[in-house]
Design a protein around this nucleic acid. Structure first.
Lengths: 133, 133
DNA sequence: CTGTATCCTTCTGGATACTG
DNA sequence: CAGTATCCAGAAGGATACAG
């Protein structure tokens, strides 16, 4: 592939396209619930109600919508058991599992620099406050 | 740090917090323009108008807002030259540069699996279409 | 149990006009 | 040149009720 922004490459054409791809991925998994779901399904298959109960604050609607998106992209597999009452299980696909690694890398970055970012924000906000007085 | 979802760890408490951190980072850089800006500033300092001209489709408003956010987090440094007409330059900070690596990893994943995801979507949509007939 | 349908609020981002 | 101020449209997401 073309690297994200290879040194020496003018940030146009290829780079623009690559950037766009990254962006689409980030926007998909960067929405409010996708990553939470992927995290929950990291170790085991889970049922709909189980996810709904254990994920704090998610609405039934968003749980369904997010699962459908992930299923559509092939990151999650949905298995319906024809029983009464119905039983539906969700699991990561192999593709879904491969996503864990890069996301984890970003997670490490976030954890490593969280404090630094918070400090930056406080400094910035303090400066802005002085500016308005 | 606590890993994103360490094997053997129940996905609660620490894991939930870690997940939340990753989520916040993804939502920040996963918005419509942050990543594009970071990509553009990868190799060199750029001026406001330059960014505005070279980034296809961005509005002046969103360029300002996004740059301010990145500046607030300490990912981008804003330098004002007291000249007439004014000249303002933007550059990645060291923190901003460290973000390039994990984002690039995600970019590689996106590029590697783009086709697979597109195929998954086509298959899924085709199936959904049949289902509604 | 596992959803779908509807309504409503909030947030994001674009267009446009104006300013130091 | 480098913004700020407004207004507005559309998307995202929550609450609630209903259905197979």
């Amino acid at each position: 592939m073309t690297t994200f922004f290879p040194p020496g490459t003018a940030p146009t054409e290829d780079a623009e396209r690559a950037c766009h791809q990254v962006l689409k991925v980030l926007q998909r998994i960067g929405d409010k619930w996708s990553l939470v779901l992927i995290g929950r399904l990291r170790h085991r298959t889970m049922r709909f109600g189980e996810l709904h109960r254990e994920i704090t604050g998610i609405s039934q609607r968003m749980l369904t919508l997010t699962l459908r998106q992930l299923e559509r992209d092939g990151l999650v597999r949905r298995t319906v058991h024809a029983t009464v009452p119905p039983k539906v299980e969700y699991a990561l696909t192999e593709l879904g599992v491969t996503l864990l690694e890069p996301v984890h890398a970003l997670g490490l970055w976030a954890a490593e620099h969280r404090r630094e970012i918070e400090d930056n924000r406080e400094r910035y906000d303090a400066g802005a406050e002085r500016g308005t007085r």
